[in-house]
Design a protein around this nucleic acid. Structure first.
Lengths: 224, 224
DNA sequence: CCAAGGTGAGAACATGGTTCTCACGACGCG
DNA sequence: CGCGTCGTGAGAACCATGTTCTCACCTTGG
């Protein structure tokens, strides 16, 4: 880095450009390689339905070497973390869109809850829009919440802010009444996120809780 | 076994008694050994605050051999499973007592929710009555729900039945109104069980959800 | 005293994550 | 052209941990 700066100061512009070009090339190469690792890992997760793939499988599939894997990732956890963050980003975007399609505050809140629930519940219909196997990612999020709560918080922060905003809007519109919007948001978020987890404890599929039921439960919970 | 039966049919009573005595002795020896494994594992969990102890540590601490460990347990999972079931039994008993102290149906339901929440939330005050570190067990239950949902269902079944009964009583008393008590029970159970998990995502301890708040949320959710 | 079954000690094995070594090929430089 | 350097692939090596296997010892009944 120091050398680069010195060069930039002393050398003619073409040289600087050449350097930048090479750096850019290196960066894009790196990004492509990271991309291939992520791609391969996503495929493995989709196939296995769990995050129990081995590093070996990832490098075989991505046609890269163990060495470069550890050059780009600190370890397996970081890789899966990246997948998690990627998935959360996708989900966020999708949820945001669903919310934008509504205008009534309560309907917007409802859209959030329903859509969020669909993203968390792995028993939903096969994934669409190239999104990936959610069950495995959801399960990993359990592990994540205990081992890297800070990372998880960070990843979920945008979604949480959105939810809180929707709740505040609904309160302002008089559609619901809550004492503390932050806590209300936490309650709703966890009710939605973990209802799929509770569903795992119900054998009869018809007895499983739907997004709609979860929403109704939340709604009543929010009308004190 | 066949030999024992034959002996019992042909030999005098004293012999049968002697055999029984030896068998009983063997059983009690076995139970003691299992007990020592469980004891050691509980201690390790309490100290580490997680189920990431090694088998080696368990056998060192319990002063037994690897060999006998695998004689009594199918593997580490079975051991931790046993700890989980043990803890659930304790919790169940405690919750049941708390419920029995109330007579009003709604108060009984409330007692259930509050006490259950306290058992699930590891941030509660230090454990009492010789009960063990709950955080680690709770975290393991996540793993469990994905890997052995049937075992988990079985372990939780008594508690679930109790909860459902309480909800039905409350409905009969007119204190709450729900369409389907089974689903209502599922919603309450998961809201309670996983609120501690959601709390992990809240940095400020004062912002964490309390048992009381969870109860109020559930209560409103149950009054359609 | 002997035979047999239970048991402790721990070697051996399997797996999977992580680190290390080395050689090879590209590329700039003299 | 030859040389040194750097990036990188291949995979050996290392390590931790769960699991299985071997064997010798000790008790105990005959």
């Amino acid at each position: 880095m120091a050398r680069t700066e010195a060069a930039a100061a002393n050398e003619p512009a073409w040289r600087e450009r050449a350097v930048a070009r090479s750096v850019d090339a290196a960066r894009s190469r790196a990004e492509q390689r990271v991309e291939r690792f992520l791609e391969a890992a996503f495929e493995l997760i989709d196939e296995k339905g769990s995050t129990e793939f081995t590093i070996q499988e990832v490098i075989d599939r991505s046609k890269q070497s163990l060495r470069s894997f550890y050059e780009y990732f600190d370890g397996k956890d970081e890789l899966v973390l990246a997948l998690f963050e990627e998935t959360v980003r996708e989900a966020d975007e999708d949820i945001r869109q669903a919310v934008e399609e509504e205008s009534d505050p309560l309907e917007r809140l409802r859209a959030y809850v329903i859509r969020h629930h669909e993203w968390c519940d792995p028993s939903e219909e096969p994934r669409k829009r190239g999104s990936h196997h959610r069950r495995a990612i959801s399960e990993f999020s359990m592990h994540l919440a205990t081992k890297h709560p800070d990372r998880m918080r960070a990843a979920l922060a945008p979604g949480s802010r959105l939810l809180r905003g929707l709740i505040e809007d609904a309160v302002r519109a008089g559609a619901i009444r809550v004492a503390d919007t932050k806590r209300a948001a936490a309650l709703v978020r966890q009710t939605v996120m973990y209802s799929w987890f509770g569903n795992r404890l119900v054998e009869d599929p018809r007895q499983r809780l739907t997004a709609e039921e979860t929403w109704e439960f939340c709604l009543r919970g929010l009308q004190g």
